[in-house]
Design a protein around this nucleic acid. Structure first.
Length: 742
DNA sequence: CTGGAGGATCTTTTT
DNA sequence: GATCCTCCAG
């Protein structure tokens, strides 16, 4: 949020009151209503304010009525917040904005209206990831593929990837299909899609793709939406994937009043299909687009902003922005070297206690980690000290096993033909219906073209299933028939209680002696509670499918603990950044799998983290870290050396670093750094060279690069080569991505 | 069909 | 080190 103290109202401002609180660039972003607009909004530059004001302005000036505006966000949280803030500006009229939501929510809305046109029934179900994996597992098994070598999880990843790129099975190129089971992936993908159709189901990726297909195959439908959406607005544009981009471009063709807001430096979701290039090519797609840069930062003090800006300047692939702050210099970014994770957690807990004693609120303190396993050490330490903390973006409520099971029961009561849900709960709790019986049900259902519930109803009366399985199947069918009959007559919360009770699901957890069981029972109670917020069962189930988080407006004072990714969009007075070590951050896997692009994304992550801090930022790195149960010597992250000396203060704690001698953990090449400041850069360079030897390429050599083709080396700096490529122009690449051309 | 033992695996995560 | 998953014996 913006600190109003720092907003410098422009004296020449005139017009509506809400424009007065904006700086000239923000105001430009608000009043440039016609034609395509790209707002490049740096971290902390009042993006959300500009964006919500723009929407309010559209409505207040009568340029558009609420239902003529399409406003898309990525998360439900962002959609909620936007709605709240527009409401604060314009009041009730915000309720009419029925097209404000996530990409997925908007697509569902459109798809339900035109389901038949894409071969679905309007009550199609939306699969969650569990269901998806289960289904894929069946398909892989049916092909007699080795499940170890080709896990369903990985196929799900591939399919997700393809869908993000807008690739339906028919558009898949052989080289794409190669990524799973030597090309079999393409066939499995096609089978999976066919299976979804017969189940009258879609997965998350399909919501976008099917909507896209609907538009492409039905020009009249497309036109009706193009006409309806007089103005379009997209938040976090740097996070859009290809499918979303195509969807937007199609809808914007008519009025071309599309406003995209984003920041290429904050693109941290490349690994799940986000294409920064969507920002880069905006001007090409929408000729005459107006580009507005928001570069006045209202969040961080001078040193923090300077450190972050300098760090991100190491990236080649960026549009380039220069952020300014009117704020004072403030504190320098603190750099701390510690022995290991334990000392790191202890040190941060100490700092937090000191801040707390100084009257600072814990709510204004955050710890941002690269990987979730790093959280444990902090949680243990905080519990020990009695410091309250909350984990942001941890395992989500609706993703918990017991909640998914319970929801599956409810979905099945609402729609007994939902085979996927039936398979999920048919033997949970254990009722003696094993794999063999389930197989039989599935086979019978398939043969007769009916749902498994119907097959179960038939088989319960024959001898094909024996013993306990048979009586259980019969009982289950009868139960569901009864529960279904109660939907109209019983309050949905009451019905949920009855179902969980009579099915034996509650009893299953009551009998469970594991430590997690009481918590699960609590969660089930909470689920019933949450259902009360909805009118009826159907409404609740639609919500569950799309909105995986629950709103929590917790007011108590707690330290915020989260991953770096979860921190995007948030801000805190004080931010602790532990674990800045090579391999952890930047993460080794990012480097291995996507090379330079991966490194730059990690660097953007560092930038996002630093710019979360308003007043204080502290970076920590350990000399030793235990990963997967093994102790490893850690090298300071290269990002540490990319922080500018002028804006950083090195602090070896209470001198602990000096007191440690060389330990059994130290390797010959690297001992824990003894002091910082001027020596910092040198130590790190040494470690680099041991880790990654200087290039043995020379100027004038001809080389080949996987992506850019053949080229001539023009310069060598360490392991970075500047190459003039024959067809792709001049690029700087790392030497391990090229090979000598004979 | 169920439960226990051994084995592989372990970044980030929204919808 | 911890957890989730698979396999196998009962």
């Amino acid at each position: 949020m913006i600190r109003d103290v720092n907003q410098i109202p422009d004296k020449t401002a005139s017009g509506p009151f809400y424009l007065e609180a904006l700086n000239p660039e923000q105001r430009e972003a608000v009043v440039s209503l016609d034609g395509p607009v790209l707002v490049l909004a740096g971290a902390g530059t009042g993006k959300t304010r500009a964006l919500t004001t723009r929407l309010a302005h559209l409505l207040a000036t009568g340029r558009a009525r609420p239902w003529e505006i399409l406003a898309v966000t990525f998360t439900n949280k962002a959609a909620r917040e936007m709605k709240l803030r527009i409401g604060a500006l314009i009041g009730e009229a915000v309720e009419g904005m029925q097209w404000l939501g996530t990409f997925h929510a908007i697509c569902v809305k459109i798809l339900r209206r035109h389901a038949e046109l894409v071969g679905l029934k309007p009550d199609f179900t939306i699969l969650d990831t569990d269901d998806q994996i289960r289904l894929l597992k069946q398909l892989i098994k049916a092909r007699n593929l080795d499940e170890k070598r080709w896990p369903a999880r990985r196929l799900a990843g591939c399919i997700d990837n393809w869908k993000n790129r807008g690739l339906t099975p028919d558009k898949l190129k052989p080289e794409d299909a190669e990524s799973f089971a030597n090309g079999l992936g393409a066939q499995l993908y096609a089978e999976y899609q066919a299976r979804l159709k017969t189940l009258n189901a879609v997965d998350f990726g399909d919501l976008l793709l099917e909507c896209l297909r609907l538009f492409q195959n039905n020009p009249d439908v497309l036109e009706s939406y193009q006409l309806r959406f007089a103005y379009m607005l997209v938040d976090e544009y740097q996070d859009t994937n290809v499918a979303q981009y195509l969807w937007l471009r199609l809808l914007a063709q008519r009025h071309k009043n599309v406003c995209c807001v984003g920041d290429d430096d904050q693109s941290i979701y490349g690994w799940r299909g986000a294409e920064v290039s969507n920002i880069l090519r905006f001007e090409t797609d929408f000729p005459g687009a107006k580009i507005i840069r928001l570069e006045r930062n209202y969040r961080s003090t001078g040193h923090i902003l300077a450190a972050a800006s300098h760090l991100i300047s190491h990236n080649d692939d960026r549009l380039g922005k220069t952020l300014h702050t009117m704020d004072e210099d403030g504190d320098k970014v603190v750099l701390k070297s510690v022995w290991d994770g334990e000392e790191e957690a202890r040190g941060i807990a100490d700092e937090i206690e000191a801040l707390q004693q100084g009257g600072h609120s814990l709510n204004e303190i955050a710890i941002l980690v690269r990987a979730s396993f790093q959280m444990r050490e902090f949680e243990e330490r905080f519990l020990m000290r009695g410091l309250d903390y909350r984990v942001i973006g941890g395992p989500r409520f609706y993703e918990r096993m017991e909640i998914r099971d319970a929801v599956a029961y409810l979905q099945l009561a609402a729609n007994p033909d939902n085979d996927i849900k039936l398979e999920r709960i048919i033997n949970t709790p254990r009722r003696g219906i094993g794999a063999a019986s389930v197989q039989l049900l599935a086979r019978t259902a398939r043969a007769q073209g009916v749902s498994m519930m119907n097959a179960a109803r038939q088989l319960a009366g024959t001898d094909e299933i024996r013993g306990r399985a048979r009586s259980s199947v019969r009982e289950l069918v009868m139960n569901f028939d009864r529960w279904r009959g109660m939907i109209e007559t019983t309050a949905h919360t009451k019905l949920a209680e009855i179902i969980l009770d009579e099915s034996g699901y509650t009893a299953m957890w009551q009998a469970d002696k594991s430590a997690a069981a009481p918590g699960r029972l609590e969660n089930l109670k909470e689920l019933i509670n949450a259902m009360g917020e909805f009118e009826n069962l159907a409404e609740f189930l639609e919500h569950v499918a799309l909105v995986m988080d629950t709103e929590t407006n917790e007011q108590t004072d707690k330290i915020n603990l989260m991953t770096m990714h979860a921190a995007k969009g948030l801000e805190f007075d004080t931010v602790f950044l532990p674990g800045w070590e090579e391999g952890l951050f930047p993460h080794q896997r990012a480097l291995d799998e996507t090379g330079k692009a991966g490194l730059e994304e990690e660097r953007r992550l560092a930038y996002v983290c630093l710019t979360r801090a308003k007043k204080r930022a502290a970076v920590y790195y350990t000399a030793n870290r235990r990963i997967h149960g093994l102790w490893q010597t850690a090298l300071p992250s290269r990002f540490v050396s990319e922080l500018p000396d002028d804006h950083v203060i090195s602090d070896a704690g209470q001198g602990q670093a000096e007191n440690y001698g060389v330990s059994r953990f130290d390797t010959a090449q690297f001992a824990a750094p003894k002091s910082f400041g001027h020596q910092k850069a040198k130590i790190i360079r040494t470690s680099y060279e041991t880790a990654k030897k200087a290039s043995d390429f020379q100027n004038g050599e001809r080389v080949f690069h996987m992506k850019f083709g053949y080229g001539l080396i023009e310069a060598v700096e360490g392991n970075r080569l500047t190459i003039q490529f024959d067809t792709s122009g001049r690029k700087r690449v790392l030497d391990n991505y090229v090979e000598r051309h004979p």
